[in-house]
């Protein structure tokens, strides 16, 4: 409950301190991170190709919004559907494999989708991206204004968080965690492991698709990089920086990651260098991410208070 309160407070405070466009992006990215964490944190599958679902959903929903003027709920629905469907395709090829194979496969299939989007210029616009995506009204309320759109995104984020919490606390979530802990034992107990993995993959794809559609409507464009491997990498890194051990890790990671790359990029042209150094430092010294560092700090503090 108190975590929820904290999140609501952050939602309210965030637009006061960063631009609404960036604040919106943070929550969109947080939805995307929640999805990845179902795979990475809860099932133990490191997918390095999540932008496949994010980007595919953005392109399809963007296309329908642009050419057929579908309403906002249809757009979100299409995004979720396309995300799930593309994840079913990719997942079918990947869930049989594990470890490094799984990482490389998701990555390589991501590249395949990327090059299809790159070359299919009549639909996607290729390198130029797909511009001119409208932001339709929600039940008669306009969300053109950036703060209204921010509110809309925040609402969907809270909804996604609630849904994800339900999923990970459900029996399904327990099974997934059992698979993460010991795949062989889960199999021995009688679970159809590949099937559950595929299910997790599809659910994550659906959430990624939702994030993709929101992203398309944020700037009115689906850029080619939305389906590129850098976005796939960024969501993994954001989640790890936040801490993949907790449901809330990706949320913090999303904030830290986007804020860091946005503010540092205006200071120094060679900002990716600092980002790289930050990654290395996190890996060598701060494994567990922000959430764990935070917990450690508070344990240390309270032990000092009692002591």
């Amino acid at each position: 409950m108190r975590t929820l309160l904290l999140i609501v407070i952050s939602i309210l405070l965030l637009p006061l301190v960063v631009r609404p466009a960036i604040a919106s992006e943070i929550w969109i990215f947080a939805i995307f991170g929640l999805a990845l964490n179902l795979l990475l944190g809860y099932t133990g599958m490191l997918s390095f190709g999540q932008s496949t679902f994010f980007g595919s959903a953005a392109y399809v929903a963007g296309w329908l919004l642009k050419h057929y003027g579908i309403n906002v709920f249809a757009a979100l629905g299409v995004g979720v559907g396309v995300g799930a469907l593309s994840a079913l395709l990719v997942g079918y090829l990947c869930v049989q494999r594990s470890g490094l194979y799984f990482i490389m496969l998701t990555f390589a299939l991501n590249q395949l989708f990327y090059f299809i989007a790159y070359q299919w210029t009549s639909v996607t616009g290729g390198e130029d991206g797909m511009p001119g995506i409208p932001r339709p009204s929600v039940l008669g309320l306009s969300i053109q204004e950036s703060y209204w759109y921010y509110a809309f995104i925040s609402l969907l984020f809270l909804l996604s968080l609630w849904a994800m919490k339900r999923i990970v606390e459900s029996p399904l979530g327990k099974i997934l965690q059992a698979i993460r802990e010991n795949e062989v034992r889960a199999e021995a107990v009688g679970y159809d492991v590949p099937r559950f993995k595929l299910l997790a993959f599809v659910i994550a794809g659906a959430f990624s698709g939702l994030a993709g559609v929101l992203y398309a409507m944020l700037f009115g464009i689906v850029p080619l990089e939305a389906i590129g491997f850098v976005v796939s990498g960024n969501v993994v890194f954001a989640t790890l920086i936040g801490g993949s051990g907790s449901l809330y890790g990706p949320i913090i990671g999303s904030f830290v990651f986007i804020w860091l790359s946005e503010s540092v990029s205006t200071m120094w042209a060679r900002w990716p260098l600092l980002l790289g150094v930050a990654f290395v430092i996190v890996v060598l010294f701060l494994r567990g991410g922000v959430v764990e560092a935070w917990t450690r700090f508070w344990t240390w503090r309270s032990s000092k208070q009692t002591g």
Binding site: A21, E25, P131, F219, P223, S265
Partner: peptide, 10 residues
């Protein structure tokens, strides 16, 4: 395109 539009808006 995504980064450029975002940073321009910012």
């Amino acid at each position: 395109a995504g980064t450029s539009t975002r940073r321009a808006e910012e």
